[in-house]
Design a protein around this nucleic acid. Sequence first.
DNA 1: TCAATTTAGTTATGAACAATAACTGTTATG
DNA 2: CATAACAGTTATTGTTCATAACTAAATTGA
Lengths: 158, 158
Amino acid sequence: MKQSSSAQSRSQPEIAEVSDAPLRQFMGYHIKRAFNVIQADLNDVLKTFELRMVSFSVLVLIVENPGIRQSQLSSALAIERPNLVVIIDALEKRELIVRDRLLTDRRAYLLQATMAGDQLCEKALRAINTHENKLFEGIDAAMRSTVVQAMRTIEAQS
Amino acid sequence: MKQSSSAQSRSQPEIAEVSDAPLRQFMGYHIKRAFNVIQADLNDVLKTFELRMVSFSVLVLIVENPGIRQSQLSSALAIERPNLVVIIDALEKRELIVRDRLLTDRRAYLLQATMAGDQLCEKALRAINTHENKLFEGIDAAMRSTVVQAMRTIEAQS
DNA sequence: TCAATTTAGTTATGAACAATAACTGTTATG
DNA sequence: CATAACAGTTATTGTTCATAACTAAATTGA
């Protein structure tokens, strides 16, 4: 009783295998662990293009949505505006994108990819596709679509 | 052709709805967005217990694995040892866990939860369970088990 | 036996990332 | 026209994550 703060001082059994069973009951835990693996793989691929997850996402959205505003980008990707500025700056400095003044609202910029940005985006998309296919090769099409459906359901809960 | 860096300077069409279609092809993107929602919900629940995701995970593993070492914890949860120290310090200061010297190896500590730690862990586990059930109520049991199976497959790829 | 190496935990520190307040310039409102 | 709202920026802070270097203890092996 008294020695509860140093229980098992006689036997002191060591843990051979660490159990995370109580966390495994949570789908969120499984998702987090899987996402860690995905993210590591993704960052590895993107390093080739000198991009990180966020800057890649930003580039893709600019390529896909020519003329998008920074404020639209920040809300679409849930990046705070101030933090987006430095990302945009870096992409602009690398001449992957340009800021064009919007003539009808001189506060805003329209973002567009340059030809180089377009090409880099294309290459990165293909490379990621290849890596995702490898990473997910043990998961058949039916499962993948179930996973996507579940993720969309969760995402819609916010 | 020539004006590609300031294309559409006449019309400047605005983007009404931002499309993230090219990212939606990646399962990783769906998983990330879903996980953001899960994490926000989780942190909200854990705030009640003055815990964050990592400190909660650490507490659970100590409760489940009495006598676990810090090095085992850090590798189980992929937390760098130096960063784990401050987490352990905080839990110890709150008297949720104790550090006991391992008699046969005086370098190591055996970590154990106190009664208060045990109880807090129990409460937190129940609260999270409740919230997860709510968050995932649109996902039936079959889908959930498919998701978990897919996540484990991905996790195993590392 | 004992010097060299390894291990567990710690300290200090810096880099990367995220969040907030406050500013400039511009547009919208009443 | 004065006031408020908005887009983007700057400055700054806090949080999170990673690395190097340290202390103390245990292990290795000549």
